[in-house]
């Protein structure tokens, strides 16, 4: 009985029977009329058409056309219920949004296609959004446009703007984190830590002693620029000029992929990385070596936390170079060298 009760229950309504048969097929199957006829739920084509019409009216089947033929797609019961609760306007707008797929649709386009008034559309969109059927998305190409797509879909690459964007905006954190990783990698590959030299050091000491005895006015001047130190606190020196293996875009990408620092969902392509590398070149962190290779700029990785201090020139370090009222400054003017507070401060700080 149990076995017959179920068909009996469903046979209570041929409509449900047909729906269940369709649901047995894999999701997103497209049914043509002959497929539905093959299910042998309806007795003849006329009653089949009626059943289909009932299902369509209940929003359980979506009508589509393909090469001039009508075809159908199944909707879930929940979805159907939601659609059923919609007003006709809402349904119309929803169908347009649905048809736009992962590309999303601009509100102005909806308005043009449906011909509804602004107020009605706003109301409908609000309703749909509150039912969690659609969501607003940001398009990187047109950040000012208000666009919508179905709530459960992921926006396409075009809309999102590649791996550097998150929610339609540049993912500053990701870019910064990855930049640091890339710069460190490039530094490791393009500079060498100077080894502590064993035997040659003795030779140098000898020579120095010899020199010292001949001339006695050698003063070890501190270097103009403190040499940047590597991870082992030894000074970094460049590769010899014969070195040909500076990291390239491809090798950096391979490193990033292998290291697994980036989520696999972020599909990083070579051209995406190239943008990042160009940006790092502009930022003065890395520099090009030859056509493809990259080398980090000396001291790009700051291990001692000295910051950007030390750079600059005679002008930018003097009070005048940073003076906000420099253009007003003049002898006998409201601002002058005698009364300048910036000078006083600068001279006091020693």
């Amino acid at each position: 009985m149990a076995s017959s009760s179920k068909p009996a229950a469903s046979s209570g309504s041929k409509k449900d029977q047909l729906y269940d048969r369709c649901a047995e097929a894999p999701p997103d199957t497209v049914f043509y009329q002959r497929d539905l006829a093959d299910m042998q739920v309806a007795d003849d084509s006329a009653s089949l058409m009626m059943l289909i019409q009932q299902l369509v009216d209940a929003h359980m089947l979506q009508v589509m056309t393909w090469e001039g033929q009508v075809c159908y797609k199944l909707r879930s019961r929940d979805e159907a219920a939601k659609l059923k609760s919609m007003t006709p306007d809402e349904r119309l707008i929803f169908s347009h949004i649905e048809s736009s797929g992962t590309a999303g649709i601009w509100t102005k386009t909806i308005k043009a296609k449906t011909g509804v008034t602004q107020t009605i559309m706003t109301k409908c969109l609000k309703q749909l959004e509150s039912k969690a059927l659609i969501k607003a998305i940001n398009n990187v190409k047109f950040p000012t446009r208000k666009m919508y797509m179905l709530a459960h879909l992921m926006p396409s690459e075009d809309v999102v703007g590649g791996p550097w964007h998150q929610d339609g905006e540049l993912d500053v954190d990701l870019i910064e984190a990855l930049s640091n990783i890339v710069v460190r990698f490039i530094e490791r590959e393009s500079w060498v830590e100077q080894k502590q030299r064993g035997p040659s050091k003795v030779a140098i000491a000898k020579r120095k002693a010899y020199v010292l005895s001949s001339t006695n006015d050698i003063e070890a001047e501190p270097p103009l620029f403190k040499p940047p130190l590597g991870p082992h606190k030894l000074p970094l020196i460049p590769h010899p000029s014969s070195h040909r293996h500076y990291p390239t875009c491809a090798s950096i990408l391979a490193y990033i992929r292998a290291s697994g620092v980036v989520d696999t969902s972020v599909a990083l392509q070579e051209q995406d990385l190239q943008v990042l590398l160009d940006n790092l070149v502009f930022d003065g962190k890395i520099e090009r070596m030859g056509a493809l290779g990259y080398r980090s700029v000396r001291g790009a990785v700051d291990r001692e936390g000295v910051g950007e201090e030390g750079d600059g020139n005679g002008l930018s370090q003097a009070p005048c170079g940073r003076c906000p009222v420099f253009s007003l400054c003049g002898e006998g003017g409201p601002v002058n060298a005698k009364s300048c507070v910036y000078f006083t401060e600068w001279l006091r700080t020693g």
Partner: peptide
Amino acid sequence: TEIEDTVTARHERMGTRLIRILHS
């Protein structure tokens, strides 16, 4: 280099980066 150093002092790294971009 001198221009970039001056810009860095007055407008941070970002200023220099923008100058370099516009320069190239």
